[in-house]
Amino acid sequence: MTGPLVEIAPGTGGDWRAVCAYHDLLPGRGAAVLVDGHQIALFRDRGGAVYAVGNRDPFSGAHVISRGILGSRGTAPVVVSPMYKQAFDLRTGACLDEPAAPGGEPAALPVWRVRLTPAASACAGDVAPPNGGAHRPETARS
């Protein structure tokens, strides 16, 4: 099985880690991965871009963001939490519906950086995606 791998790194800086094959991700759907005890939700949209955000839904405290439906609000790519249906901007992690979760914590998901690397050499350089967290495989292959 060839094809690119998905690598992610914390938005605040840190090491890149390969988490799954790009082809493991279903277009328009998400999947969760476990990295050093952190749960991260990965999404691949219908155009092929990949996003990574924290899997914990701040409104319910449950780790379910990866199971939300992917969509767009205007120009923003969003995931809609399957629990209480708030939309989060996948580029910034910001909740577009409510500013804060019930306990007062900010309603935002941590954002992870994403890159795709050829499966053979999982150590290609960091190609900064143009729109923050997202990464398109076409640019990775170039």
Binding site: G28, R46, G47, G68, I69, G71, S72, V80, K85
Partner: peptide, 10 residues
């Protein structure tokens, strides 16, 4: 066109 959303997809 585009991605759709949690309303139209289901």
């Amino acid at each position: 066109g585009g991605e759709g959303c949690d309303v139209c997809k289901p």
